[in-house]
Structures are given as structure tokens and as C-alpha cells.
Simulated assay, not measured.
Amino acid sequence: FFNLNHLTRFFSFFQIRTLGMLRSRFESLPGAFNNYLIPVEKNEQTKKKGILKATFSRKFDKSASSKEKEAAKFAQMWNEIISSFREEDLISDREKNLLLVPYGADPDLVDLIQWPPFLLASKIPIALDMAKDSKDKDRELKKRMSTDNYMRCAIRECYLSFKSIINLLVLGEREKKVINDIFTIVDAHIAEGNLTTEFNMSALPSLHEQFVQLIDYLLKNKKEDKDQVVIVLLNMLEVVTRDIMEDEIPTLLDSSHGGTYGKDEGMTPLDQRDTYFGELNFPVPVTPKTEAWKEKIRRLHLLLTEK
């Protein structure tokens, strides 16, 4: 379909000479890319050719719009090019992972564009740094999110992926109820636009640290790490309910402990919560969908840690 000479001419034509230029022009690439490098089908020759906004991770089917078809073609071709760069040792494994577009649609990320990680690199660390001081920077953070589409996409993808992973791992009914209550409260504050002012966001870096540890264990997916996964989940639950949510704790504890504990008493001591997360879907069973799961975890790790 292509050769490096064609690709070089393509990038030169659009004056793409640096990674920064690629970032700034990436949204306009799919339409131009398809027009320049991919032969136009006969039934599409009379259609107007235009620049489109990339909509990756959309399944390709007969009912897909022309834009979705172009995006699907571009994603496939782009990944083939990036993979060929790696095969020819022009880029490293890390660079390849940063440049790849997700191969398949993620059902947990409906209507969310999954940009290549290099476009989202550093967005989560920056957002975390701003959020932990949100009492002073709330307006600045909201302004940044309203103008920075990549940051907004990175935050949404990480949050939705976090929900998906936790719901997949946790099997116990009691734990599921507490977790669902937490997500319901968080979603309500997101909808109201007051998440950063109602919660103690200074503890968010601690939650981020625990989540990265969880992702590390999921990447390894080893049975002998199950106890460590339980500890990480307990730590995450404690950070969220005790440190971040604060005023919401009585409601959660009433619903999960029958009203035994109050806010001043805090969470149940760790040594009394040994039955928490006793039922876990870990290690994650190997199935035909395992590769998609691994890709999701690898991508999430990049979004959470890349600076």
C-alpha cells in the first residue's frame, strides 16, 4: 500500500517535520492521508473529499459513515506504518506503543475518541498536579479542560477504564455495592461540575500511585500477586473514602456496614477487613479477548505515567 518515500513526501507536503508539528496537525491527517495514499473506491470517486476529525476505535460496518470509513482505513494504515518502522528499527518499542492507535473498539469507551498515546502524554500528570491544588486552581483547571481536548479525552478515558477494571476485578457483592455507591456519587458531582470543590483532591496523587501499582500487577497477571492486589484495592478504598470523599463517608459506611461506623471513627481497621476483596477475578482468565485486555492495560499505563 505504501513505501517510506510516499510517506516522507506526505509529511513534507503537510510541513510535518517534528513531533510537535505532528501533534498540532494530527486531527487533520485521516482525510488527507486517505486522499493521498489510499486509492479511492469507484463508488466514492464523486464524493467530496474533505478533512475530517479522527474518530478512532469505531467498528467498521456497512452502516458506517464515510468519515468513519476513512478513520478506520487511516487507523489500519497508520498502525501498519508504525509497525514497519519498528521492524526496521527506526523507532523503539516505547515509541511504537506511544504512536499506535487502538486496534479495536472498546465497548467501555462509547463516543470517546482514543487518540494515539503520544497526543495524550503528560496530560494526566499535569491534570493531577492541578487537581491536587484545586482549591486554588479550580477555575484554571476547568478552563484548561474546556480548551484542551486531549486532556479532556485522557481524563475521561482513564476514569472510564478505571471503572471498567474495578468492576471486572471485584466479584464480592458487598464490595460491589460500596464501589457502585462511590461511582454514583462521583458521577453525580461530575455532572454537577463541582467535583474538585466538593472532594479533597489533594489526596488524588495517592490514589494515582495505588492505581499505577494495580496496573503493574494486571500487566504481569500472576496468581502469586493476588494478595498484593487485595492490599492495593484496600488502600485505594481507604484513600477514596477516608481522604478524598470525606463528607460522603457516613452515607457509604451506613450502606455497607449497617450504620455501625461514623465519620469520626473512620474506616474499619485493616486487620478487621481481611474478608474484603476475597473474591477477585484475578489473575484475569486467558480468553480470545485477552489481547484486547492487555492492550487496554498497556495503553492505560502509558496514559497514567508518561510525562
Rank of each mutant, 00 (worst) to 15 (best):
K226Q: 07
Y276A: 13
K59N: 13
H257C: 09
Q210I: 08
D181H: 05
I38M: 11
I231T: 08
A191N: 11
Y261P: 01
S206T: 08
K48I: 15
L195M: 14
F33L: 05
S206M: 13
I244T: 03
F1N: 10
L119M: 10
A131G: 04
F10R: 05
V170N: 01
D148F: 07
S134H: 07
E246H: 09
L270E: 13
I249V: 05
A71P: 01
P102F: 01
F1S: 13
L207D: 05
P30Y: 05
K47D: 14
E198R: 08
R86T: 03
N43K: 15
N281E: 15
S134R: 06
N34E: 14
S256D: 05
N167W: 01
E175L: 11
Q213G: 10
N34T: 11
A188L: 09
D227Q: 11
D106W: 05
S12R: 13
E87F: 12
E306T: 12
P107D: 10
S206C: 09
L128A: 03
A64T: 07
K143E: 12
K53C: 08
T197I: 13
C158D: 05
L303G: 01
R174T: 11
A32R: 11
L100M: 02
E140I: 12
S63M: 11
T196K: 07
L234H: 07
G31Q: 04
N5M: 07
E295P: 04
M201L: 06
I38K: 03
I297M: 03
I165Y: 06
V212N: 06
P107H: 12
F282M: 11
P39C: 08
L303I: 06
I190W: 14
M201I: 01
S92W: 05
K135L: 12
Y217R: 12
I82M: 10
D129Y: 10
V178W: 05
L19W: 15
T196P: 02
A64M: 10
E175W: 08
K96P: 02
F13D: 14
N149H: 14
E27G: 01
E44S: 09
G104M: 14
K73F: 15
Y150M: 09
S84Y: 10
S24N: 08
S57M: 04
V230Y: 04
H257A: 11
D108Q: 09
A71I: 04
K296M: 04
I165G: 03
S84L: 08
E80D: 15
K73R: 15
